[in-house]
């Protein structure tokens, strides 16, 4: 079966060790995590976790069921591409001297990236967007030497007011 990617959004109780329980579930069952992000929600009792996982349909179904089984997990849903917005932040440090600087800045501008640090030999770009956009800028920058790259993994929310889980 073909391998697909899915984005899962989890609402979990903010208990100690909750992230390790979830990460541990993925590792021991051999599921692939492409990225995982976690942060507290408007209600401090809950944490929202966004996981990008890959696998065939059967595995993706098992992932959803096994995650739902964890006693800390309050809610699991798939964030479907058309119905949700995803964002990832990346920081890219590129080696550049004064002569290359303008070229790199213009690439960053095209992607609405920000220059957040400059040194005589390097430049740091901050960029936010979907994973495709970040992949695209990395491709454009591949002609330069990327010294360091930090990606946060995506966070996502469903569009509109459907499927909002009331946290009471």
């Amino acid at each position: 079966m073909e391998t697909k990617k899915k984005v899962f959004q989890l609402l979990v109780d903010n208990t100690s060790g909750v992230l390790s329980r979830i990460a541990g579930l993925f590792s021991r069952r051999g599921y692939n995590i492409e990225s995982i992000t976690a942060g507290v929600t408007a209600d401090p009792r809950f944490t929202r976790i966004t996981i990008v996982a890959s696998g065939d349909d059967d595995i993706l179904e098992q992932i959803e069921k096994q995650v739902r089984k964890l006693a800390d997990v309050r809610h699991v849903r798939e964030l479907k591409p058309g119905e949700s917005v995803y964002r990832e932040l990346a920081m890219i440090k590129v080696r550049c001297d004064a002569s290359q600087r303008q070229d790199i800045i213009s690439v960053a501008n095209i992607f609405r990236g920000k220059i957040i640090d400059v040194s005589p030999e390097s430049l740091m770009i901050e960029i936010t967007g979907g994973q495709d956009k970040i992949d695209a800028i990395l491709k454009l920058l591949s002609g330069y030497e990327i010294l360091e790259l930090a990606r946060t993994g995506i966070a996502g929310l469903g569009r509109g007011t459907d499927h909002i889980v009331t946290l009471s």
Partner: peptide, 8 residues
Amino acid sequence: VDPAEIGK
């Protein structure tokens, strides 16, 4: 009783 067993 365990939905994760069904279809596994």
